[in-house]
């Protein structure tokens, strides 16, 4: 029982990270139909930025996080302008090739600078260690992750439901042509959401340096997870993405604990089956 609670807790924390990273991809796909396989690169960039900011620059953990969000978001805007935008109307194959290219460059670059090994990060003391709840030892850091995740989810949902910009995003995802006809600058909306989503991925990557283990192959290693979450959640749906990420987080953690010999096998089977059963996502709508 205690191990079950512990697993659930770890799984939810893991799922929170996956959500932070994937939500941007979901919106990108829902909004522009752009297949951005390189989304994980932003998460990896966030991770390495944290290593640099806390190591060489000596910044405190909490100060580094918002800075990472801003830097990754800004960098993603540059990529969006120069590389992504010319291919919005291209075939999906071209988009795949471009973004695979970006992954390769990122892997090569990260290996060149930081080497192929995993990068450690020392999280502040007050986040280390365990605390006891109802007889179960839980990690402080994971609780911190979940708190951040919850806050950001609330912020996103609020922003999407209550603000003018959120209304524009929803209109653009829902009915792109109508939105454009109503005077919504869909490309601008996309640009901003792309930057926000990439920033969140960077934040997720930074928070996940320990949990997800950061190395240069990060963007490829987790590619299927991100895609799976987006497809299962339904492209463009925040709550769908959250649900899918938490489910995957718990399932993956439990799977590794109870049936370690199957490895990632089950995840792929689940992915294929879900794609066949619910091609538009669990909470997604038919377009």
């Amino acid at each position: 029982m205690t191990s079950f609670l512990g697993l659930l807790f770890d799984g939810l924390a893991y799922g929170t990270l996956l959500f932070l990273i994937s939500v941007g991809l979901s919106v990108t796909l829902g909004l522009m139909g752009f297949i951005n396989l390189a989304h994980g690169v932003f998460a990896m960039a966030g991770g390495y930025l944290l290593v640099v900011l806390m190591g060489a620059a000596g910044l405190p953990f909490l100060a580094a996080l918002p800075l990472i969000f801003v830097v990754v978001a800004a960098a993603s805007l540059v990529l969006e302008r120069t590389l992504y935008r010319p291919l919005y109307k291209s075939t999906h194959l071209d988009q795949v090739l471009l973004t695979v290219g970006i992954i390769f460059v990122a892997i090569a670059g990260a290996t060149y600078i930081w080497g192929p090994g995993q990068q450690p990060v020392s999280i502040p003391e007050w986040l280390q260690g365990q605390f006891s709840l109802a007889g179960v030892d839980l990690s402080r850091y994971r609780l911190f992750l979940m708190a951040i995740g919850a806050a950001i989810t609330l912020g996103l949902v609020f922003g999407l439901e209550r603000t003018r910009f959120g209304a524009r995003v929803r209109a653009s995802v829902e009915r792109q042509r109508t939105a454009a006809a109503m005077g919504i600058h869909v490309e601008r909306v996309f640009q901003i959401t792309f930057a926000l989503g990439s920033g969140l991925a960077g934040l997720g990557g930074a928070l996940g340096v320990d949990v997800l283990s950061l190395d240069p192959h990060f963007p490829l290693k987790y590619l299927v997870y991100f895609l799976l979450i987006v497809v299962v959640g339904g492209p463009g749906s925040i709550m769908g993405t959250l649900l899918a990420a938490l489910l995957l987080g718990v399932a993956d953690t439990a799977g590794k604990y109870y049936i370690p010999e199957t490895g990632a096998f089950m995840i792929y089977v689940v992915m294929i089956v879900l794609l066949l059963v619910a091609p538009h996502g669990l909470l997604g709508r038919k377009k």
Partner: peptide, 17 residues
Amino acid sequence: AEYWLFWLGILLIVATR
């Protein structure tokens, strides 16, 4: 080895355009 991956990536990015 990383050199190769890097140039391959660059090639892909350029080639799609």
